[in-house]
């Protein structure tokens, strides 16, 4: 008798548990991600930029015959957009990186583009991977997503064909993790959150790769789940497997962790006042919304205090004050 009651109960409990794992957690994580990110960006936006403080990385616009650096030191809004585009799309500042090494009691500055390359490779391949995932969320699959998949698997290695972005993202993440452990300076500054974020990303990428090339997953089931989530008619399909579950939970953890961690740099990079402002401080007045009057030592007070000395030195006094 007990078994008769327990089995359906357990079964339904398992069903509910699966529902929570496959539906509840992703929803919650995505809601936290979006809500949290908006909350952070709005938080930044609420604090004004009282002063125009771009870091100028090139010649200013001054005399017409002096060649200025319109992207590294833009003097127009359009130039600032260009600078930001270089910054966001190509990591311009990181590209400048060099490495100071002591050699015979002097510093030499060697080129050091690995960090730039690693960071760029990681971010771009991550973007490609995210966009490729649209094939699971949208029906019919948009043409650009299919095209992207084709290009990404251009070399047709194996079946299913190997995505280059998968290789790149794993290599880049491994590099970023190893340099944190290897470089003693970096190990000194690295915190739990640095490793945590990297390991989450690495875990997500590895489980993803594993599903594609190793343990396999029923893509149709996954897509049904994804579409269900996206269109608010969640279904809990059978046979998605444990690896997929881990993958999904890691993505959810990453999404929920995102707004509360350093990962918010994704939004923050656009708001950096040392990068997104034109260096036209002397051409155009910039207004500080909280500018308030301060105590100064006025000319009248000063003249009063130094009247004797001014007279002695025959420096003209302010006539208006004299009368």
């Amino acid at each position: 008798m007990a078994a008769l009651v327990a089995v359906p109960l357990l079964a339904s409990a398992a069903g509910v548990g699966k529902g929570i794992l496959l539906v509840g957690i992703p929803y919650a994580a995505f809601a936290i991600f979006l809500g949290g990110l908006c909350w952070r960006v709005v938080g930044w936006a609420r604090s004004p930029v009282p002063f125009r403080i771009p870091t100028t990385c090139g010649q200013q616009t001054s005399l017409p015959w002096i060649k200025s650096a319109p992207l590294d030191n833009p003097s127009t809004g359009l130039g600032a957009v260009g600078r930001m585009a270089l910054e966001v799309l190509l990591f311009r500042s990181l590209f400048r990186n060099n490495r100071a090494e002591i050699y015979d009691q002097r510093y030499v500055f060697g080129d050091s583009k690995w960090l730039w390359l690693g960071a760029l490779a990681f971010h771009w391949s991550l973007l490609v991977i995210l966009l490729r995932h649209l094939r699971l969320f949208v029906q019919p699959v948009p043409a650009f997503v299919l095209f992207m998949g084709k290009v990404d698997s251009f070399f047709q290695i194996g079946a299913p064909a190997l995505y280059l972005s998968n290789v790149v993202v794993l290599c880049a993440l491994a590099y970023l993790l190893l340099r944190r452990l290897w470089d003693l300076r970096l190990r000194y500054i690295s915190q739990f959150s640095d490793y945590f974020a990297l390991l989450l990303l690495l875990g997500t990428a590895l489980t993803g790769v594993l599903m594609r090339y190793g343990t396999r997953v029923d893509v149709v089931a996954v897509k049904r789940l994804a579409i269900g989530l996206a269109t608010f008619q969640p279904v809990v399909p059978d046979g998605v497997g444990i690896v997929f579950l881990i993958h999904l939970l890691m993505v959810s953890a990453l999404a929920a962790y995102f707004p509360f961690s350093k990962l918010v740099h994704m939004g923050g990079v656009f708001l950096s006042p040392t990068r997104n402002l034109a260096n036209n401080s002397r051409m155009k007045r910039h207004v500080n919304p909280w500018n308030y009057p301060v105590k100064t030592h006025t000319y009248a007070e000063w003249e009063e205090e130094f009247r004797d000395k001014l007279l002695m030195a025959e420096i003209p006094l302010d006539e208006a004050k004299h009368d």
């Binding site: 649209l134 969320f137 949208v138 029906q139 579409i227 269900g228 996206a230 269109t231 608010f232 279904v235």
Partner: peptide, 13 residues
């Protein structure tokens, strides 16, 4: 994008 696209296309699961 998947949300509004899916809702608009009345995608089924």
């Amino acid at each position: 994008f998947p949300v509004w696209k899916g809702v608009a296309a009345q995608s089924s699961t």
